[in-house]
Structure formats: C-alpha cells, structure tokens
Design a protein around this nucleic acid. Structure first.
Lengths: 106, 106
DNA sequence: AGTATATGCAGGTAATTACCTGCATGTCAA
DNA sequence: TTGACATGCAGGTAATTACCTGCATATACT
C-alpha cells in the first residue's frame, strides 16, 4: 500500500465528501455521485480516480455504468500505522501530565 | 478544529517525517529538526508552520530557540470523526462476507 | 438504425504548493 | 560591544492541482 496516496486522497474535502456519500450508500454510479457534488462530472471523475489509485475505492462496470465501492482497508492501515502511534503518544502525554499533577499535590 | 487543515498537514511525507521525529523526541528545536530533513531550513520552517496551523504541533520559545511539541489531540479527533467511520464500514463488510460464506456452506 | 444516456479522454488556465536565495532580527557569550 | 548562532521574513520559480470546455466512445432502448 502507498501511504502517501491515501493521505493525499484524504487531503481534499470534495474527496472526503465522496467517501461520505459512499458510506451512506455503497456502489453508486459516477452520475449519482455527481448529483451531490457542486462541480462538473469530469472533475468528479478526476477525484474518484485519485481515490481509486489510493485504493480507497474500487470500481466495477455494469453495462455503461461504473459502480464505486468504498474499500476501508487502506484507511484502517493508515490508522494503524499513523494515527494510532500518535494516539499512544497522546495517552503517554496524559500519563505524564497525571504524574506531574500528582507530584504537585504532595 | 479544522479537519481540513489536519488532513492537508498530513498529506505531505516530509511533514509526516517531522511528526515522526517529534514522536521519537518531543520538544526539538528547528535546528535539530532540520538535521533530519533533506531541505533548507526555510522549507522546514514552512512545513512546521502548516503543522502548527493545523494545531498538530505547538511551539514554545526558549531564548533564541524555538521548541516544537506534538499535539496528538486533533489527530485523534480526525481518527474519531473519519477513520473510525470507515473502520466500522470495514467491519460491516467483513460481517457481510462472513454471512455470505456461511450461506454458501449450507 | 437512430437517439438518448453514461462514461472516457485531451488539453488549457488559474490557483496552490514546495522548494529556493538573500537579507533581517533577536539572543547568547566572551 | 562584537561575533557566532537560531530563527524570521520577503520574494521568485517550477511543479502540482483543481477546475473547466470540447469531443469521443460505449451501452441501452425503441
């Protein structure tokens, strides 16, 4: 997996909105996704392309339609590799802070 | 908090590397952080500025030095608001898959 | 076949971004 | 005060990005 592509894919609010839409209803067509977005179809295609390259969504053709599905795995992996680390740092900081406070109480 | 700034701050590999360095040792100066980075000091300053605007790091002056501290709270909030949602979707998918497999076994 | 629909592809422009160089300011220590 | 060191600020360039318009292709329906 390419961490960087996932992060970059998530860096745009329009792309996060697209993921939101797919969270609500998975397997939507390009046209359906366009309805929710305030931009031209071609721009939406571009955003979806980045999401697909990041492996955050996958697609499947059904006749002339293209269905889009969310793939939560890379998102979870990013969480595992990155956010969790900082979360642990956060807990450690809170722990330090607690110790600090307790020391001052004495 | 501004989700977007946090996502954009994380979108760059150099900035993630800076966070990594601060994870290893918190409270480093600009100069110290520059040693690890393959770019000019001014560029590092710029990256640190974005991280600070996203409230992912905070700074503190000590004489002529500027110390940088990681702030894991917004990272955790981003996880809570975003990644966790997809994680739940992932679990739901796995659940569906399991049911699917079980149905096929019969 | 002919028309409508869903998507793909090419290319162009404006805004943003990531670097850089050069110089200014502020702090420490002798 | 002077010299060394740590950082701040201004501005410039090349690359990337996010849109767009226009046209092409593929599928479906009558």
């Amino acid at each position: 997996m390419d961490d960087d592509k996932v992060f970059k894919a998530l860096a745009d609010p329009n792309r996060r909105q697209l993921l939101d839409r797919l969270c609500e209803r998975n397997g939507q067509t390009l046209g359906q996704l366009c309805e929710a977005m305030d931009m031209k179809r071609q721009s939406v295609t571009q955003h979806l392309g980045l999401l697909e390259q990041a492996n955050v969504i996958s697609t499947q053709r059904r006749g002339r339609e293209k269905l889009h599905f969310i793939n939560p795995v890379p998102l979870y992996e990013v969480y595992e590799r990155w956010i969790r680390k900082f979360e642990e740092g956060r807990l450690a900081l809170l722990h330090d802070l607690k110790q600090e406070l307790e020391r001052n109480e004495k």
